[in-house]
């Protein structure tokens, strides 16, 4: 009967594979962080930040990420302040009660591109661009999904009506409201890396993985220590347990 259950589990897993929805499963890519102990490649994430600021940020927000946390990607405080200074943010009301703009600083969060949801919708034909802070966690197999999606723009098959959207085989329903955002050479990387489409996308996904999971590296580093400790403790407890119970038998 136990074998039955194992067979059932295998069976349900294979059924899962066949019950694929209309969207294609994302292509698997080996990112620096893909393996259980992998880390975020800081250079790649820095380039990804550049792609985000120069391309994505005009429509997408990153509201949960504070500029200060960019220090984790290897910038120093002055660099962080100069990155933040590219953005204008609402100041506190002044003495006359007016709200003026000021340059964003270290402690601010990424400035949102639109004042509110309705402005975002109107500017984008009714489909608001989602906030990207958590995008990688908010989709199944998120890193591969975002990468595949950004590389997955194609001409629709003949007879396929995309309406006001665009054809993308990785999107559920195959129609996406966002026009293809990256084509290659959209930015010029300061470290001399060639800005091919795939390079830009990989760097951006690395950056967005970090914004989704800023805890990733600490978590994995701490995890290794904790698991090792627990394994040793489990073995010691087991030996203690056997010793104590062996007294019972004699």
């Amino acid at each position: 009967m136990k074998n039955f259950i194992i067979i059932f589990l295998l069976f349900s897993y294979t059924l899962n594979l066949f019950s694929a929805e209309e969207a294609l499963k994302p292509e698997q890519y080996n990112f620096s962080f893909s393996k259980p102990l992998g880390k975020i490649n800081k250079n790649s994430a820095q380039r990804g930040l550049q792609v985000f600021i120069e391309v994505c940020a005009s429509c997408h927000g990153l509201k949960h990420v504070a500029y200060r946390s960019l220090e984790e990607l290897g910038y120093n405080k002055d660099q962080v302040n100069s990155i933040a200074a590219q953005f204008q943010i609402d100041d506190l009301p002044n003495e006359e009660g007016e709200i003026l703009k000021r340059k964003a600083i270290y402690s601010d969060y990424f400035v949102e591109p639109y004042k509110n949801l309705n402005e975002a919708k109107t500017a984008n034909n009714g489909a608001y661009p989602p906030d990207l802070s958590l995008m990688v966690k908010a989709r199944k197999d998120g890193a591969n999904y975002v990468r595949s999606l950004l590389l997955g723009y194609n001409e629709p098959p003949s007879g396929f009506d995309v309406g006001e959207g665009y054809y993308n085989k990785y999107m559920a329903g195959n129609v996406i409201a966002m026009p293809q955002p990256l084509y290659g050479d959209d930015v010029e990387f300061s470290d001399g890396t060639k800005a091919t489409l795939e390079q830009e996308v990989n760097d951006l996904v690395t950056f967005l993985t970090w914004t989704s999971m800023p805890d990733l590296e600490n978590r994995r580093a701490a995890g290794i220590k904790v698991i090792f400790f627990l394994l040793v403790m489990t073995i010691l407890f087991y030996i203690s347990y056997r010793k104590i119970w062996s007294e019972l038998k004699t």
Partner: peptide, 11 residues
Amino acid sequence: IHQASGAMGIV
């Protein structure tokens, strides 16, 4: 062994 187990538990 018991002392080692106990120490692990305290840690």
